[in-house]
Amino acid sequence: MVRSRITKVDERRREAYRRQRDANDKAAVAARERAAQLRELERDAESRRELETVWGSQQAGLSRLRDISKQLDKLHRAERSLLDERDRLVDALRRNNVSWAMLSSWSGLSRQGMSKRTS
């Protein structure tokens, strides 16, 4: 069977549309990638501005981070020390027949919480 001229024209048209769709799809992907890169650059610039506005510079921010971490470590050590002292005191008071209810009201902790810490 011989193909008609109309069929050949339709095939060429379909092929042209397919190439156009492929080109449009590639352009859309490239545009999304460019937009994502621009958003990332804007986020980076915003974070640099925030760092400079709040802490002065990256080096100043790192120094402040180190200072905060050292202070937190000191506070954690102090907290552990106070908790240990409180637990020893609760234990000593319990051995002297002070009620859980009284210990709870004076410490601000629940009876169950104190009993768990001392057992």
Rank of each mutant, 00 (worst) to 15 (best):
R80S: 15
S105K: 15
L83P: 00
A78C: 10
R88E: 09
V90Y: 04
A16C: 13
S57I: 03
R49L: 13
R48A: 15
S47Y: 08
R95W: 01
R5D: 04
V90S: 00
E11H: 05
G108F: 00
N96K: 06
A36S: 01
W100V: 03
R14W: 08
D25R: 06
R64D: 05
T118D: 01
L65M: 14
R80D: 15
R64H: 07
D22H: 01
A31S: 06
D91R: 08
S110Y: 04
N97G: 00
G108Y: 00
S105G: 02
R117Y: 04
W100P: 04
E52T: 07
D10G: 12
A23F: 11
S99P: 00
R88H: 09
D25H: 05
S115F: 01
M1R: 03
E40G: 03
N24A: 15
N96Q: 06
R39S: 13
S57Q: 02
V98I: 14
R49H: 08
D87M: 03
E50V: 12
Q20P: 00
L109R: 09
A35E: 08
S81C: 10
L89R: 05
R64K: 12
S57R: 07
G56K: 03
E11V: 09
L51D: 03
K74M: 07
N96F: 00
S57D: 04
A23Y: 06
G113P: 01
R77W: 12
Q59F: 02
Y17H: 08
S47M: 12
M102K: 14
L89T: 06
N96E: 06
G61K: 03
Y17T: 08
D84K: 12
A101R: 10
R3K: 15
R39A: 14
G61A: 15
V90Q: 01
I68P: 01
V29C: 06
E50F: 13
L51A: 07
L62R: 13
E40V: 02
N97E: 05
T118N: 03
S115E: 02
R34I: 03
D44P: 00
A78N: 12
D91N: 10
R21I: 09
V2P: 08
R86Q: 10
T118Q: 04
L82K: 10
E42I: 11
A78V: 09
R95K: 10
A27V: 10
E52I: 02
D25I: 10
Q59M: 06
K116C: 07
S47Q: 13
E50H: 11
R49A: 11
K26D: 10
R18S: 08
L93Y: 06
L75C: 01
L72S: 08
R117E: 07
R5M: 04
